[in-house]
Write a protein that binds this DNA or RNA. Structure first.
Lengths: 205, 205
DNA sequence: TCATATAGACGACATGCGTCGTTTTTCAGA
DNA sequence: TCTGAAAAACGACGCATGTCGTCTATATGA
């Protein structure tokens, strides 16, 4: 039962994990993820294979840590947060998602059949987006408003789904162009939690 | 390279695949998915292990076929479709998603660590939802409207995300109660494609 | 009804995986 | 600086996986 990636103080541990992540990064520029064996990773990282399992339960866990860490770093670099009032913060979040996918998915050509890669990216990125959005969710006030957790989850999934759809479009426009499109339906979602400056939409039967 | 599950005419093939899916279904009532070996499945199905690989590339492909097939069947039984005009059709779709999760996820207790189960369910169910929604998408009319494919994807992901959030809530209310909640923010999404009776929402900067 | 195509059975194989126990090296705190 | 704790190296093990080639049984279409 390896401990979480972010709460590591021992420099030896940090070093080894960096080595492993770097090796996987390098290998994925050539092979697709499921063509890569744990042995390939540890050899390139000059780490014993058994040591690998002291840090991650399997190669999927390593990938997950890499993706989550990378996306978190991107968000941190851009100082992205969401307080529930400023729509431009949501824009920045969507743009960051676009950029992350662009940077890390080998542009479609490289990775046609990324069996385990995509689901892991989805889970890691949506949960990161959700975390940011939760920061701007209002207290569960009147019973008319929807539970903030549900709104945040739905919004994060909608964002990632839309971005993914855009990313998989053959002649896709620039990221800056799709962000306002996505905003168009994300704003109503966020508003349905009952934000500080917007009335929740009403259901019409 | 096994052929798709739905385009099988040979009764021998149908029989074997039914056997395999049935065996996996039975086994999952006891063990969690990743505790199940291919050998376990083939033994219970009275099928040779090598034969398994004539039908599915691995056990994940079998699970995916099972989930997708099961959800499609549920939708078909309830005659669910979406023509873009009737909101109650969207309600039925959401309710079906709730019911499917309730029926097939071992109620949380059984499957605490379903590593590969959840991502596969997500992919299969969202794409099924998306397919239904695409049936009701308007033609890409004015440039002001969003691309239908993107709207359908975002909506399907939002629906599944919201349902999943509800499903994972400890003291969750009845499915009939959450459906209108989810509808509250799904309707604006679908409307943003420019439906036949609703104006698209405008972006306010 | 028969001929051909094809699914399934079967045995065997190399390989990657995850685990274990032991020894060696490195870190952190007294 | 020394010492106990913890990480990494190392070798070995059993097991499940995915693949292959051959042979038998069954279905389809003429």
């Amino acid at each position: 039962m390896p401990i979480s990636d972010c709460e590591v103080r021992d420099p030896r541990m940090r070093r080894t994990r960096q080595l492993l992540q770097g090796a996987l990064r390098t290998l994925m520029q050539t092979k697709s993820f499921d063509e890569i064996a744990v042995q390939d990773i540890t050899e390139l990282a000059t780490v014993n294979r058994a040591t690998f399992y002291d840090h991650y339960t399997d190669k999927y866990a390593l990938l997950e840590a890499m993706v989550a860490g990378g996306f978190h770093m991107l968000l941190h670099e851009r100082n992205i947060s969401y307080d529930g009032t400023c729509p431009s913060a949501a824009s920045a979040l969507i743009l960051a998602t676009c950029d992350y996918l662009t940077q890390n998915h080998g542009d479609g050509a490289t990775c046609q059949r990324q069996s385990a890669f995509e689901p892991l990216t989805e889970a890691a990125v949506t949960s990161a987006i959700r975390r940011v959005l939760m920061g701007g969710m209002p207290e569960p006030g009147s019973a008319l408003n929807l539970p903030p957790a549900m709104v945040a989850t739905a919004a994060s999934w909608a964002i990632y789904g839309a971005v993914k759809e855009w990313f998989n479009t053959p002649g896709r426009p620039a990221a800056e162009e799709v962000v306002p499109m996505i905003m168009q339906f994300i704003i109503p979602i966020l508003a349905s939690a009952g934000s500080k400056d917007t009335e929740p939409v009403s259901v019409h039967h």
